[in-house]
Each structure stands twice: as structure tokens, then as C-alpha cells.
Simulated assay, not measured.
Amino acid sequence: MTTTWTAEQHGNGSYAEVNGINLYYETHGEGRPLILLHGGLGSGEMFGPIIGQFAEGHQVILIDLQGHGRTADIDRPLDIKFMADDVAALIDHLGLEKPDVVGYSLGGGVALLLAIRHPQKVGRLVSASAGIRRSATYPEILEQQGQVGPEAAEFMKETPMYELYSRVAPRPEDFPRLLGKIGKAMAVDFDYTEEVRNLQVPTLIMAADADMCPPSHFVEVFELLDGGLRDGGWMGEGRPKGGHALAILPGLTHYNLFTSPLFATAALEFVDKPE
């Protein structure tokens, strides 16, 4: 099986030794910096079908997170807090001035934690398909996640995730290890309600209308950000005080949102909005 994720035009790939990890990143286009963070068991290549939209007016930096894509794993749990710190260190390494950050699924969680832990390093934030509380995920999905472990590697050999990993990973034989670490990470309870309530970075909460969590969860997150509590007003005076926004994208699921032109359009509309 070959994925259809890869971009027709390859970016410039490099490695950076930051925060104790040799992090792979790839740049596309020119303009104001925008960091794109991929989903679990993927890599920056996941955005291949829509990278052109993002790169049309931005210098896009695709990062392969810990243990994913071309970034080898290290002796550390897969934890979005650590991965957020990796991204913050790369921002410093590259000398970027408050880049906008767009993340999907695992990357959406990393992006959110980046804004929570390092708000001074982020311009605008888009967190897509990333619940802020484990219990918000549908029970049947939590049950499926509970079955992810090293022993699942054989069953995943016909998936796009394995095809990508086996093609680009520094150590393709580490795929069972990655599944084991992801399985452990998904079993850990989390709730970022209070952290989100105090978020200082202008944030777009985005989801598919048939995502891993119900649309009501993302509406709840928007409410934590002062959204959906009153009429917006003729001049927008009733919109959330922090510049936050909500987008529920129609006709999509958790598994195709990241290749949809709607995803890129909504994200760019938000990050490119004049101050």
C-alpha cells in the first residue's frame, strides 16, 4: 500500500538537535512562518495533499514529532508536554518570531500544550481534532485505543501509517515500539480544562462534524475560551475577548480532515486575519 499523502513538491529537510532529540523538520514556501504538526502514527507528509495551500503565502515548517516519520525515538515517554517543549526548542533554534502553529489530532494536542507552556513563542494557534479531556472521546474509540500495543504491528502492515513509517523512519524495525508507546500514552487520563480556560494565545478550535469526540465537546472548549456565551454583535464586539474562534467542518471525519482543503482554508482564514 502506498499513501496519497506525499506532496508533489518536496520541501527542504533538515535535522536539529534540540531538547535532547534529533528533530526532523521540512520547510515549504516563503512568508510568515507557520508550523504544521501531524497526527499520531503519521508524519509531516500527512499534509501532502494540502501543503500547497499553506505554503502559498507562508514559510511552512513541517515537524516530525518524537518517534514519528524521520525523527527517531528516544528514551522518553510519548507525552505531548515533552513534544510541545521540543517544538518550543526548535522555534528558538530556528530564530522564529512567534510563528503561527497548526496541529491536528496528536499534533493538535501538542500545539495546545505549546501555547499553554510557551505562550510567548506562539502567534496564533489552530488545534484541530484534539479533545482536552480523555473522557470526551467516544467509549468505543477508547476501547479500540486500549488494543494498541506492540502486538498490533502485524495487523497494521496494510495501513497507510505502516507504509509511511517503513519508508521514512530511521529504524523501521521500531514500529512495534512506537505502537507500544502510543498505546501507553493513550491510556493515561488527562483533563486540560483549567489550562485552556487561561489560554492567552488566540486559538481556533477545529473539528470534523463526525470526529472522535462529539461536536458538543468542542463547543464546550470554545465556551471555556469565552465563546458562544452571547451574541457576537454587529461589529463583533461580543466575540470572545481573546480572539478565539470555533470551526466545525462539515462532511468530514477524524480520518480525512487533515487532507481536506476545508481544513487549510479555515486554518489560514484564522491565522491570516488582520489584528
Rank of each mutant, 00 (worst) to 15 (best):
L179A: 11
P160Y: 02
P99T: 07
I50E: 03
I80S: 08
R197C: 07
V196N: 05
R230I: 08
T259G: 11
L34D: 00
A153H: 00
E220Y: 11
D79K: 13
D75S: 14
G57R: 15
A247C: 11
G149S: 11
L65G: 07
G243P: 07
P250L: 10
Y165H: 08
I132R: 04
G149T: 09
T6L: 15
R171L: 02
I182S: 09
A208P: 10
G146V: 11
V271N: 03
A152N: 00
P202L: 09
D226Q: 09
S127Y: 01
P172K: 04
M83Y: 02
T71Y: 10
A7E: 02
E154S: 15
V201R: 06
L112R: 08
H244W: 04
D189E: 14
R239Q: 13
E151A: 15
I91C: 07
P261K: 07
P176E: 00
R177G: 02
A128Q: 03
V221L: 12
M186W: 14
I91F: 07
R167Y: 00
L252I: 14
T265V: 07
A245D: 15
T265Q: 15
K181R: 14
A245K: 01
I50L: 10
R133Q: 15
I141K: 09
V221Y: 05
E30S: 15
A267D: 00
E154T: 13
H28D: 08
K184Y: 03
T137C: 05
E56D: 13
W234D: 08
G131Q: 11
G13E: 01
Q9Y: 04
E56H: 09
L249S: 08
M186K: 03
A55W: 01
L114A: 12
A152W: 02
V219C: 06
R124E: 00
A84K: 04
R239F: 12
D73P: 02
M235W: 09
